[in-house]
């Protein structure tokens, strides 16, 4: 779980975009950790959200993830 979380953060920091889809994050993690299950990636992402590292961005119809404090319109 910890290595998946690390891979997620690495992806979130290096990704060109400040917000990204779950699928793209999933692919990036699976590139680093072949065989990582999507259920576990989701659990890790949820933990990162709960810890305040990742944030959700939602348009109402679609949800994306982002690294807290990195470029997305945040509430003051």
């Amino acid at each position: 779980m910890e290595d998946i979380k690390k891979a997620i953060i690495e992806y979130a920091e290096s990704s060109k975009k400040s917000k990204f889809y779950f699928k793209d994050m999933e692919k990036a993690v699976q590139n680093k950790i072949p065989g990582a299950k999507s259920r576990d990636i989701k659990k890790a992402a949820t933990e990162l959200v709960n810890e305040g590292t990742l944030i959700y961005f939602s348009t109402g119809s679609t949800t994306m993830y982002g690294l807290k404090g990195r470029g997305i319109t945040e509430d003051k």
Binding site: T46, I55, S58, T59, T73, D75
Partner: peptide, 20 residues
């Protein structure tokens, strides 16, 4: 209206739709 935003309640990724 701007489309979307980062709002939510703790631990939930849905149920709140940010409108500014």
């Amino acid at each position: 209206w701007k489309h979307g935003g980062i709002v939510g309640v703790f631990g939930y990724g849905g149920g709140v739709i940010g409108r500014y």
